[in-house]
Nucleic acid binder design. Structure first.
Lengths: 346, 346
DNA sequence: CTGTTAGCGCCTTCAT
DNA sequence: ATGAAGGCGCTAACAG
């Protein structure tokens, strides 16, 4: 048997289908007793409105397409959680497309052509589904200009950006400045930094924060303390080796992610250098494992939830033509644990 | 201006809308030259079919509703990835609902009432959206009977089950049997096990695997070596303390998840007991951090991707009325790292 | 306050 | 091989 529709309700309640629609949406005043009859009929027949029909009519699906470059990457779930948070409050649904980039092309992000087709298919799929807007979640922050043609649909990027579209980022410079401030407050002045890949905006901005802190706090600047890593554990290991071999090694290392911290710890351990007693270490990301390593890692937590929340909030605003002031950029948060020690004042 | 529709194509190609539909779907033979005209028109107008209208007509959305109890829990992303894998191959789309249980109710899963409403809302939302079927991803495996009324829509559970519905699990007993076999092959015979919460099916089944291995390999059975944990790090720590205080302590510990291993390691470290030289340790889950701890943890990897894949595959089969033999239960895989040492043979 | 009706974009039966 | 037309379930003029 067919699913019960507005028509069945109308028949049962002895009203027109228009009236049913009115009580359903509250778009018109309806006499209490007729409303009652309708409500009863709805209950008895266990009626569920058909959003598909509604969407067709209204040309509006209340659905946001979310394209994740890879849901298994650590930033994705928490960003999606933020999207859901806002979505729940505003009756927005989420159509999720997972590009599965890690499994399909590995880390070869430089070659846009290798995944252009996946992205284009995703967009086309979402457009056919008539989503009201699109959110794109990158695996790491980079310029995505020209990857996607959203055909006029509102789109916002997070963990990525283009020249023309809205994108949500967090304040990288502030984050590394804050990390540095923490280290400096603990008495450190020879502070090394291990960066991520330098083609990445976050790496550069965090380096800016580092420079600014050095300047503001009038620390001696030593280029030997600046090391270019690649986000991977091995680079943390190798570069820490170099740092510790310096004639005058640093007393603290700021690593631009927690994964490289694993390498830092290992390098220190192999040289019999105790963390944090002889070497303080800070990371970025507040990955789950930061709390499991020994010592537990002091790190900067990323505002992933907020980024997701803001991404969909911005999208919602442009979809509805709301004029709103720009949202304030989310900031990282210092998570103090055990990998930073105060330097004895001399 | 209105979006271009099938009607515009028909006008431009000087055919009827029916013909356009035919070439779009290949449902009828169309003379090559008319087909050509249609295809050209589609290109020129950059036409994208409207799946909403199609769905309304066909009463089929090619969309699967996925209800995740919490996408930020470690099992969810990889399961979703498996769902996407199959979905991509069969043109199935994913409408994702995130119950956000961790943030909303914490770990209070025993009290179904506290989240029944969230689940009901999710289902109702998906039914209105006319999904063709539903997948429910739990946070941990338990009986969910009576939580959800899917109103006749096909539904399959993973990381959870009900009395009546399809559910996808992996082979827990086999997994712990295999883990035990590995330990035994390395020469261990006094092997302790730290379980998860005992209200959990996986805990019980893994214990079965433990017993079966003990029996099959004719190891002495010592109830003192069986400890009931609660999946959390602290219980791993505390119970390892108890185990190491035994008059005759175990030479190996099998922990039912990697998180408790963190506690195991810590307890051993505090007593100056070297892992794996003096104590071998194995975990479950192959969490990312298992590779970051020192020593790197040997563990059983969960077939999460396969579970997601099988979940949607089963769903797809019931939706399409395919008669198929039941899928074979996915199995865990041993990941050998550095936390297990061979016992010197005496 | 309530009913009638056109039409959203598409598929498909029926006719030619 | 192609076209005409009805209808999926719903909303919103418009009419009364």
């Amino acid at each position: 048997m067919r699913k019960t529709s507005i028509k069945d309700i109308a028949a049962k309640a002895k009203v027109s289908i228009a009236t049913v629609s009115y009580v359903l949406n509250g778009t018109r005043n309806v006499r209490p007793d007729t409303r009652h009859r309708v409500v009863e009929a709805i209950k008895e027949l266990n009626y569920k409105p058909n959003d598909i029909a509604k969407s067709l009519k209204l040309n509006r699906t209340n659905t946001i397409g979310v394209i994740a470059e890879d849901v298994t990457v650590f930033n994705a779930p928490e960003i999606i959680d933020g999207i859901n948070d806002f979505g729940d409050r505003h009756d927005l649904h989420i159509l999720l497309v997972n590009l599965r980039l890690n499994k399909r092309i590995g880390r070869n992000f430089a070659d846009i052509e290798s995944y252009r087709k996946y992205a284009a298919d995703a967009v086309s799929e979402l457009l056919s589904k008539q989503v009201d807007g699109i959110i794109y979640i990158g695996v790491h922050t980079r310029d995505l200009t020209g990857l996607i043609d959203a055909d006029g649909k509102p789109i916002v990027y997070t963990y990525g950006y283009t020249r023309d579209d809205i994108s949500i980022q967090y304040n990288d410079e502030q984050a590394s400045y804050q990390a540095m401030s923490h280290l400096i407050a603990k008495g450190h002045s020879r502070i090394a930094i291990i960066s991520g890949l330098m083609d990445s905006i976050p790496s550069r901005q965090r380096l800016n924060g580092y420079y600014r802190a050095i300047t503001d706090f009038q620390l001696p600047f030593d280029p030997l303390l600046i090391k270019m890593g690649d986000w991977e554990r091995e680079s943390g290991f190798r570069l820490t080796g170099e740092l510790l071999s310096l004639p005058e090694p640093p007393t603290a290392i700021l690593s631009m992610n927690d994964v490289m911290v694993v390498g830092v710890l290992q390098a220190a351990d192999e040289r019999g250098i105790k963390v944090p007693e002889q070497l303080s270490v800070m990371g970025f990301d507040n990955r789950e494992f930061s709390d499991y390593l020994r010592p537990r890692i002091t790190t900067m937590e990323l505002p992933l939830h907020d980024m997701g929340y803001q991404a969909i909030e911005s999208l919602y605003n442009v979809i509805n033509g709301n004029k709103t002031e720009p949202l304030i950029m989310p900031e990282c948060r210092l998570i103090e644990r055990d990998s930073v020690a105060a330097l004895p004042t001399m």
